[in-house]
Simulated scan of single mutants.
Amino acid sequence: MGAYLYLALAIAAEVTATVSLKLSEGFSRLTPSIFVVAGYLLAFFALSRVLKLGLPIGVAYAIWAAAGVALVALVGVLFLREPVNLAMISGLVLVVGGVVLIEIGSQS
């Protein structure tokens, strides 16, 4: 499995774990709590594989963090009825843009 495939797995697992953290209601609900622990374990395992396969840590972490932030925010708005406004959208655009610049810079 390639580094970017492991990175996608790490992102998906982290987003699942983070959303489950909200749904666990302070770890008082068993099923979401299990998803929290399993998701974070899988996310860190997959991220460790990404690094072992040679993707630079700055690039890997930037993509992982930015994608996680953007996807969790999207899930919050679409499924958890959390508010969104222009300032929040602008912030997400800046985060993603920053990651793109890091990726471009690492290729130079």
Rank of each mutant, 00 (worst) to 15 (best):
A67V: 03
L23W: 13
S24M: 11
L78N: 09
F44P: 04
A43E: 03
L41D: 01
L23Y: 09
V59F: 10
G54K: 09
L80M: 15
I11Y: 04
A12F: 13
G97L: 10
Y6K: 04
A70V: 15
F79N: 12
L94R: 00
L74P: 06
L30M: 07
G91T: 07
L53N: 05
M88L: 15
V19H: 11
A66N: 08
A67K: 03
V69M: 08
V37L: 14
F27Q: 02
G39H: 09
N85V: 11
S48T: 13
A10V: 13
T16F: 12
S33I: 10
I102W: 05
T18K: 04
I102N: 09
V69G: 00
N85W: 07
A60I: 06
L30C: 04
V100Y: 15
F44G: 02
G68Y: 00
R49S: 11
L78D: 08
L47T: 06
L41S: 14
S108I: 12
M1R: 05
P56H: 02
V75N: 04
S33D: 12
A17T: 01
L71P: 12
F45Y: 15
M1A: 11
S33H: 05
A87Q: 05
M1T: 11
N85L: 11
A8R: 01
V99I: 00
A62P: 08
V15E: 04
P83Y: 05
E25V: 06
A87S: 04
L30K: 07
V36T: 02
F35T: 07
S20H: 04
A38D: 03
L21G: 13
V100A: 14
V15M: 08
A66Q: 02
V37Q: 05
M1C: 07
V37E: 09
Y4Q: 05
E14R: 05
V84Q: 01
L101W: 15
E25T: 02
A73E: 12
L42V: 15
L42G: 03
F35L: 15
V37I: 15
E25F: 08
V75M: 12
L5R: 01
T18V: 10
L21W: 13
A46H: 03
L21R: 10
G98R: 07
A67C: 11
V96M: 14
F35C: 14
V100Q: 10
A17F: 03
A13K: 05
L94C: 12
G98V: 01
A38Y: 05
W64G: 03
I104Q: 13
S106F: 05
S108A: 14
A66C: 07
R81H: 14
S28K: 12
I63M: 09
G58N: 10
L92E: 04
V77P: 08
M88C: 00
L53H: 02
A87V: 13
L42I: 15
A62K: 05
E14T: 04
A38H: 02
